[in-house]
Amino acid sequence: MTSTLILASASPRRKELLELLQVPFKVMPSDVDEIIDNSLHPKEIVQQLAKQKAEFIADKVDNAYVIGSDTIVAFENQMLGKPKTEEEAIKMLHMLSGNTHEVYTGVSIVTDKRCITFCEKTEVTFYPLSAEEINQYVATGEPMDKAGAYGIQGYGALLVEKIVGDYYAVVGLPIAKVKRKLRELGYYEQ
């Protein structure tokens, strides 16, 4: 019997990226209470959260490959989550303006027998942004459900001068590495 591939995320961006594998999969968002230890490095936090999400769904299904993922934006040792208000989004974007920050995306793939968890770090540099540019971007509404108050795959692309690392990890799922880890777990040999 072929194992089911499950994405433990409600993110439409992660769903779109997983579709690049051209294999059938199910989406089962994980409702796990995210428990994090803020004393840990963002790299460790995203891996823990990804594993919590994948294990939450894996405990409910049999014979599946469950993918959990989490992304954190960090700047000068400060984690930048999703802004709660437009003012918070504006503050974050002013902080990132003209600077380089890190995006950490953790992924965990859980099966009945094994688990592989990893993290991709990508450095993102923003152009210096005027207050007008920031206000126009915030007015699009896009920053409000994005870690670090921007989405690189949308209007946020206009803020980015360069990246060093995996673009798709910034979007939310380093899909090329996910494919290789699925192969390592035996998914493609079924």
Rank of each mutant, 00 (worst) to 15 (best):
V164R: 14
K146M: 10
T105G: 12
A147V: 07
T140W: 05
L182V: 10
E102Y: 12
Q78V: 14
M95R: 15
E132F: 08
S69N: 10
Y65C: 05
I152A: 01
A149P: 03
E88H: 12
V160F: 06
T117G: 07
G156W: 06
M79C: 14
T105M: 02
E120Q: 14
K179P: 05
I175T: 07
K162M: 13
P143G: 03
I116G: 01
G68D: 10
V73G: 00
S69Y: 04
E87D: 14
S130I: 12
E133D: 14
V171T: 08
K179G: 10
S69K: 09
G165P: 10
V178D: 08
G148S: 09
D62A: 13
A157I: 10
V138E: 04
R114H: 15
K60Y: 06
K179S: 10
D145G: 12
E142K: 06
L129A: 05
I67S: 00
D59Y: 07
K146H: 09
T140A: 08
V160Q: 10
N99L: 06
V61Y: 07
E120A: 02
K82M: 09
R114T: 15
N63C: 07
V160S: 03
E86N: 14
A74F: 02
T100L: 04
K113M: 11
M92G: 01
N63S: 15
V164D: 05
Y65F: 15
V61Q: 09
E132A: 15
